[in-house]
Simulated scan of single mutants.
Amino acid sequence: MSSPLGAVEIVEMAPRDGLQNESAVLTTEAKVELVERAVRAGARRIEVTSFVNPRRVPQLADADELMRALPKYDDVRYAGLVMNQRGLERALAGGVDEVDVVVVATDTFCGRNQGMTTAEACATAASVVAEARAAGVFTTITVGASFGCPFEGEVPPARLRDVLQRVVAAGPDEVALADTIGVAVPADITERAALAREILGAAVPLRVHLHDTRNTAAANAVAALAAGITTLDASIGGAGGCPFAPAATGNLATEDLLYLLQRTGWQTTLDLEATIASAGWLEKQLGTPLPSSLLRAGPFPG
């Protein structure tokens, strides 16, 4: 039966963003299990790992091994995060279906995150996108710190406009606005989604990546939907965060988002009970409580 409000696509981030900031380092076998659990729950776009310097993100040092171990499904797309040409080479060799290239909106954070200025990151992203698209791989450019920076504070709309203009000139298949440190409120989502749509036009899909650091991610998801954005990132259990930003805690929990969407009348491919079960499994693997609300309270009616 079709939903009265339409369909929402959830990009599952737990294997990459969910694990990169956790103190526990999962085995490759456990990561394969996490991906397979997401697939069984109905996830069809999964960001599985990050092809970055393993010394910088040791939790994801097995990216190449993981890609060799993952089962392939005709209707599931695996994405890998890349920062530069070397990362792209590894991602393509691993057989990714998508690459996600990050450009951080402020120079200070961009320097901490990837050792270059925002302008340099935009140039690098353009080169990566061109090569990835030539190889037939779907490309996303994620603009990190679109709503605020842990080092420079507020990110003015004029700054975001400049970055988005550079990003759209690179020709990605999709653009994502990331609330990397979880500072946005719904009014920010509304404002910056409108700014992004003005620059991107109607042809380039827009998605949002929300962190729940200040307990606003669910409200921000509603604001994104109201702004016409129907591709949202989330992480099983609410696991994750950015290792290069102080106090950048977990993502919007996939099961919390699912509950919100289902009760509101949106359709997804995901099963709520299976996702909650996966959150409980992941919590045991990590050995630390995860911030998911549905993992504690369960669905309603119970």
Rank of each mutant, 00 (worst) to 15 (best):
D162Y: 06
A38G: 15
S293F: 13
G115L: 12
G238M: 01
Q267T: 04
G6W: 09
V82D: 00
V76T: 06
V208E: 02
G171W: 08
A226F: 05
R192H: 07
R90S: 14
G153E: 09
I229T: 03
E29L: 05
F51M: 13
V102S: 14
E98M: 15
G95A: 10
P157K: 05
P15A: 02
A158W: 04
T117Q: 12
G136Y: 13
E273P: 00
A135R: 13
L258K: 01
V137W: 12
V143P: 00
T231D: 09
T106V: 09
L34C: 10
M83G: 07
Q285C: 13
V96L: 13
V102G: 02
L200E: 14
M13C: 12
G240C: 05
L232F: 09
L270E: 14
A184W: 01
T249I: 13
P291S: 11
T216I: 01
D212E: 09
R192F: 04
R16I: 12
L164Q: 00
F300D: 12
V99S: 09
Q114G: 12
S278K: 00
A274K: 15
S292G: 15
A223L: 13
A69I: 05
A226D: 15
R37P: 09
G144C: 05
A61L: 05
V25A: 07
A203F: 04
R16E: 10
A63M: 06
W266A: 02
R86G: 05
Q20L: 08
P205A: 09
V39L: 08
L261E: 14
W281M: 08
V99P: 03
V168H: 03
A248P: 12
G80I: 12
R197S: 06
A274C: 03
E33L: 01
A132Q: 08
A253V: 03
F300K: 14
A119F: 06
L225T: 09
N251R: 07
A14N: 06
D17T: 07
A105F: 10
A176T: 14
L261P: 04
A134I: 05
I181W: 02
L92M: 09
W281L: 02
R44W: 00
R112T: 03
A239G: 04
M67G: 04
G241Y: 07
A248E: 11
E283K: 11
L294Y: 06
A93G: 01
V99W: 00
G136L: 09
